[in-house]
Design a protein around this nucleic acid. Sequence first.
DNA 1: TTTTACCCTAGTTTGTCAATAGGAATTTGG
DNA 2: CCAAATTCCTATTGACAAACTAGGGTAAAA
Lengths: 144, 144
Amino acid sequence: MKISTKGRYALRLLADLAANSSDKPVSIKDISTRQHISDKYLEQIISLLNNAGLVRSVRGPQGGYLLRKKANEITVGMVLRVTEGTMSPVSCVEPDAPPCEHMDQCPTIYLWKKLDKAICDVIDNITIEDLVNERPNAGDEYFI
Amino acid sequence: MKISTKGRYALRLLADLAANSSDKPVSIKDISTRQHISDKYLEQIISLLNNAGLVRSVRGPQGGYLLRKKANEITVGMVLRVTEGTMSPVSCVEPDAPPCEHMDQCPTIYLWKKLDKAICDVIDNITIEDLVNERPNAGDEYFI
DNA sequence: TTTTACCCTAGTTTGTCAATAGGAATTTGG
DNA sequence: CCAAATTCCTATTGACAAACTAGGGTAAAA
């Protein structure tokens, strides 16, 4: 049960973009150099974020990418769901999963629902801004 | 980020064993029939649980498996760590991971630590007994 | 019009998951 | 003592996805 490199790179990419943002777009090459990630691979990942509306692209010389939303409006959950597909620990608690026939006698359904909620509570309450500010207690107000 | 079938089967296996336990061992064939899981695959899984000391085996006719601990002393976390290897969402927060060189400037380390803790809080506070009793609120006392 | 950058698709390599298969070792009932 | 039941152990397989690598196409600015 691991987060893929795609998801991890996407978060570092966006944190880099947020930290180095101005009016000027940031190129893949710049991010690739700073983060030591293959530019070609980053290209594929940022394309997902672009299609999902999290970043905006500018073509041509001096082109690159800009955040489309504010860093504090982009949650980790949004990013990971774009790159990982879903963050549910088992398929039967995925958002639009067909209701399981054996749910009424399944010994593990409450476990999975509880685990799913615990994961969502974390990733949906931490933003890219929190990552940039390296805040150890980011999102904690939601866990009281 | 998914729990493998191995982990899910192991939990169902142990819940079945706990629910059908007596002084007599339960054979793989019985569990396989009740749970509709390949007996040969179950064999491999229960072997892991045996080596980990969670169950005890009895060979020969009328043989099978017994829980080695009480059902309320076996947590979901114990089981999943035997079958999945580790439940950390990224390798750099694994229990005995070498300290990351870039940790002091890593924007995501607090996120991963927080996510790891959230997962552990669930799986380490729900037991096989809770699964058998189908308790929707099992482990909740730890999340107050 | 050339250069810089994004855009798109395809291929490759490697590893893991989820079994399947076959036989060896052990124990009990007859 | 022997046959059947059952666990034990290892190898193999097929499918699939992850993590890149590669190469050309397209748009825009200087």
